[in-house]
Amino acid sequence: MSFQRYLVRRLLLTLPLLLGITVVAFLIANAVPADPINANLPPNQLNNETIVRAFREKWGLDKPPVEQYFVYLGNLLRGDMGRSIKSGEPVLADIAKYLPATIELSTVGIVLGMSLGIFFGVVSAVWRNSPVDYVVRFLSLIGVSFPIFLLALLGLTILHAELRLLPGPGRLGFTASEPPTVTGLFVVDSLLASDFDTLRDALRRLILPGFVLALYLSGIIARITRSSLLEVLGQDYMRTARAKGLNERNVILRHGLSNALIPVVTVIGLMYGNLLVGSVLIERIFAWPGIGQYMFRASTSQDFPAIMGVSMLIAFIYVVVNFVVDLLYYFIDPRIRLA
């Protein structure tokens, strides 16, 4: 199959899913027992006849539900997700403000988590049933079983409060000032501004939350890598590779791992969800001003436009991430190209 055909086919499967997400979001937003006007406007505007009427008109609330959905979809396509009740700002602007902090943290988390997970998964599979294997398997089981908030609190107590090795919660300390916003990622922005003190502070503050997130992810990745590599190690082509006289390192890394990584890549795509779960909980503990913190505040204060905006955005990203993973398959798995 040519890449173009594969791409078009995947796209055709993805578009209905994106549309479906807007339907689900619309349904949940309309399942609120409360009146949508009460749920979406700040209390002090409820008595203001003009604002209420404008709101009703903008979202087509006097029309039948099906028509309402299309009004909603139309507004959405123009990038209008409504206004957050709590901040009073357009939801999209809020998201743009909070998203970079989450991207910065989750990038550190997933890069560290993948490196640790794949490394320990390989070690554990190669030295199967050795003490190393048992230790890795036990640790990865702890990684998937420990509530991430417990890991975070333990990390803060030991490394910050007791040993004073790492700074506490927050993206920056009190003394540092935010670098001028270009990307919203403090590490990148402070580098662009050549502000190395801020850069050092931002990096140091990423270590602990990033590492906690990584521990949580690496448990899952190590387990999948181990079982996938074990399955591959038993294949005939592994024996062939050894029979050709390749050294063990080459056999395992080039013939073994490259085949074992296919399911690992799938899982990493699907793990985007776990990454967000982790981020929501970690951001709460580390006072990290990211999208998880925003979602948390929105959901505990019934800020509906914000909740639906974030859920939809996240579902969209999820679909897009998995679309990209599907495209990656094309390059990783030659069977798709030949099919």
Partner: peptide, 13 residues
Amino acid sequence: AFPTIILAMALAA
């Protein structure tokens, strides 16, 4: 397509 906790948060809210 909705990550567990996000959908659960929206529904619970």
